[in-house]
Design a protein around this nucleic acid. Structure first.
Lengths: 124, 124
DNA sequence: CTGGATCCCCTAGGATACTG
DNA sequence: CAGTATCCTAGGGGATCCAG
């Protein structure tokens, strides 16, 4: 059993998950972590299915929280680059851990799903 | 800089976050982790604002993935108890880590938000 | 190229009423 | 008590057009 005291103070996770657990934020952080620096258009084409608007919204939120740094170059046509800040990288590390958990237990989860499906079928 | 190779294989996080990062799943896992075993009605009253329907849906998804165990007692009135499985507890451990990250960087994030707000104000 | 502004649809999820 | 079934609304997010 896990240390109970630690769980007491766990409430901020909810905020974190609510803030970064949406449809696109993950993709963005992971991509930026992987490539270091990316332009708006590079992100847009890398994140399959994202709309212009949502990429803007997502990046703005990350920038607002200080997880992503936005750099504008005064050129024609304009160039804007995004990169993780140290703070963003530290979150990325946690996400990698979470990802390792996912990898380690993916099979187990899928097996559970199949078994659950079988049980449901029996009932009917 | 973070180890790039690890990030390559990070995709499952997106699924995990998409699956467990919704409005109520966190609350449920954390509560079950904290109390060990809870009845449906206990969960409902503990998770402020959750509707009957969403608690059912949430618990069913967790049960389906093998993160939560559902036990029905043949009594009148009926009693149903929920508890984390070992798999569920292992996810909880990751969430606790994530929570510790949140705690550690909450101030930093809020400071970044305020600074961002000031900059926006200047523009206008 | 990078985004801001608008319109609009779709679905997550709340409220309510009903069963075992 | 522990759900299921229906109905219905708010807002997330897509499509499109415009601007610097």
């Amino acid at each position: 059993m896990l240390n109970r005291k630690k769980i007491e103070a766990v409430c901020p996770v909810k905020d974190i998950m609510a803030r970064y657990g949406d449809k696109w934020t993950m993709h963005s952080i992971l991509l930026l972590g992987k490539h270091g620096t990316l332009r708006f258009s590079e992100l847009k084409s890398s994140i399959e299915g994202i709309s212009q608007r949502m990429l803007t919204v997502t990046l703005r939120a990350l920038q607002e929280d200080g997880l992503v740094k936005r750099t504008v170059y005064a050129e024609r046509p304009p160039r804007v680059e995004y990169a993780l800040t140290p703070l963003g990288e530290s979150l990325l590390e946690q996400l990698v851990l979470l990802s390792e958990w996912a990898h380690a237990h993916l099979d187990e989860i899928q097996k559970a799903r199949k078994q659950f499906a079988r049980k449901e079928k029996q009932k009917i």
